[in-house]
């Protein structure tokens, strides 16, 4: 990977981090906040992959292991967050239904 390649992808990663930060600060509801955090996470991970590919030799395996672990960990946390969102929507639906009847 040439230096030009590293600069291109690292810039893309940083831009995505910015996008995620922007979206996170603006988001009003939970779903958009979660997506914004995931966009920022993609930015961080892309930056790391670009850093791993620097130089002329093999890509750095420790960084790759970090990215893989980071992917799995943030997927788990996102899954929990979305389960919470779904559960809250379900509870709200039940309350509204009760309010209707009662």
């Amino acid at each position: 990977m040439t230096s030009a390649g590293f600069v291109i992808y690292a810039t893309a990663g940083v831009a995505l981090i910015g996008a995620g930060a922007f979206g996170l600060a603006r988001a009003r509801d939970a779903l958009r906040r979660i997506v914004a955090i995931n966009v920022a996470a993609l930015g961080v991970l892309t930056t790391m992959v670009a850093l791993a590919a620097r130089g002329g030799g093999e890509a750095d395996p420790v960084t790759h292991a970090m990215v893989l672990t980071g992917l799995v960990v943030s997927a788990s946390a996102t899954a929990l967050a979305l389960a919470l969102v779904r559960r809250m929507a379900h509870l709200r639906g039940e309350e509204d239904a009760d309010g209707h009847d009662g």
Binding site: A30, R33, I34, V73, A77, T78, A81, L84, V85, M88
Partner: peptide
């Protein structure tokens, strides 16, 4: 959920 969002961003 708020805690999780803050924690995820921090991590």
């Amino acid at each position: 959920l708020r805690y999780l969002a803050a924690g995820l961003t921090g991590s």
